[in-house]
Nucleic acid binder design. Structure first.
Length: 394
DNA sequence: TCTGGGGTCCTAGGACCC
DNA sequence: TCTGGGGTCCTAGGACCC
């Protein structure tokens, strides 16, 4: 592949920054977004503090001031409250974040149309045509232009990495956060990338990283110098070979401007673990509601699915899944519920349950196909939602 | 005081077919 | 009767990412 200029653009502390647009008086102070329910602010304060929260939940985003106290996304709220009891706690407002997400993505597309969505707060952009033969000087100009456009559209700051591929750009966008731009050419890899921890590579998670550490491999440079045969032995043919490529900054993936969803799911963690017998009415209600919500999501996206899945997490955090493939795809809540109910009969209900989830996969678009016709018939033929207690069979 | 919710991709075994 | 291989679908679990 000829030389490319690929950008990764990452919004800075996105959810928290959107909240600060609303509550500018919190600027410069530690604050986190997270929690499952709105907590009342104590008397005399405008907002609750982290220490006022009790119950389940994790940090979704933390401001840089809160991060300085050791709080980061994914951390349990109760643990975070120990580290930063005075941090302000703001409830998540996903509708608002989606609005700002669209604003910043539209602003980028107005300048550079080849955009790949990577979730609500980040994108890849192929800048090759825009940079032309202007080299890295031109690449920096385009990056600055994108940053300005995002700020004008949203009032928010973002960071960019521009490199020859997605893998390197993802690493690079994190290097000058917040508000920075990092440009890395192929010849800079040994100096800029190799000193970084192997964990910085997108695709090396906590498990793989721990196993690398056990092999004495800590940095990307050390990974690059490792005998490929050793990695293949420990991580398998595919993953081992990929690791070596990644460590050398090799990545040919193209920027994909569109994609079809593969599955749609809904799940919920209960405020308190539920007992399969004593709480069966509540469980049944939640279960039905999840099926209805998944069906609504399918309808909204205009897709149907053939494989219905159930997910259940016990109080000991052990998670089990069961799925069942139907003869014809469906988008109907009652059919989904019946199939998920059959899945439920195949799991042990001998301990308290922490989470329940319903998933529909093997998605397709109802078109002029036989499968779609069958799905339409199935939808019409489905009776009104029955309401037997699914947790009765014990 | 542990550990959200929405996804993707990979692996691996068994069924079933050619 | 035994041996064989490949391809695809289904299912369960797990790693990883935002």
């Amino acid at each position: 592949m000829s030389d490319r200029y690929i950008a990764h653009l990452d919004m800075d502390a996105f959810y928290a920054s959107v909240e600060l647009l609303r509550y500018p008086q919190l600027r410069g102070q530690p604050a986190v977004v997270g929690g499952r329910r709105r907590v009342a602010a104590p008397a005399g304060a405008d907002f609750p503090r982290l220490r006022d929260y009790t119950g389940r939940g994790v940090i979704t985003t933390a401001t840089y001031e809160a991060r300085a106290l050791g709080v980061h996304s994914g951390m349990g709220l109760m643990k975070a409250a120990k580290l930063a009891p005075d941090a302000w706690l703001l409830p998540a407002d996903f509708d608002q974040y989606r609005r700002y997400s669209k604003l910043f993505k539209d602003a980028v597309r107005g300048i550079a149309p080849l955009v790949e969505d990577r979730g609500i707060d980040e994108i890849y952009i192929d800048l090759t045509a825009l940079v032309g033969d202007g080299g890295w000087t031109r690449a920096r100009e385009v990056a600055l232009q994108l940053q300005r456009a995002v700020r004008e559209a949203t009032g928010l700051s973002c960071s960019l990495g521009v490199t020859p591929n997605k893998l390197l750009s993802k690493i690079a966008s994190d290097l000058e956060k917040p508000g920075g731009i990092a440009l890395i050419a192929a010849e800079d890899i040994s100096e800029r990338i190799w000193p970084l921890p192997a964990r910085k590579i997108n695709g090396i998670g906590p498990k793989a990283n721990a196993r690398l550490e056990a092999l004495g491999i800590h940095t990307i440079g050390e990974l690059a110098q490792t005998d490929p045969a050793l990695l293949v032995r420990h991580f398998g043919k595919n993953y081992g070979a990929w690791m070596i490529d990644a460590a050398h900054g090799r990545d040919q993936r193209v920027v994909k401007t569109s994609s079809e969803p593969k599955s749609i799911s809904r799940e919920t963690t209960f405020e308190d673990d539920l007992h399969p017998v004593r709480d069966r009415e509540q469980l049944t209600r939640i279960f039905t509601d999840l099926c209805v919500r998944v069906a609504d999501d399918l309808k909204r996206k205009g897709v149907v699915g053939k494989t219905i899945g159930l997910k259940l997490r016990y109080d000991n955090f052990k998670t089990v899944t069961r799925d069942r493939t139907l003869d014809a795809p469906t988008g109907d809540a009652a059919i989904i519920r019946r199939a998920a109910g059959e899945c439920l009969k195949r799991v042990a209900l001998d301990r308290r349950i922490r989470l329940l989830g319903v998933r529909v996969g093997a998605l397709s678009t109802p078109g002029a196909t036989a499968a779609a016709a069958a799905a339409a018939v199935a939808t019409e033929a489905s009776p009104a939602m029955p309401a037997p207690s699914l947790f009765d069979e014990l």
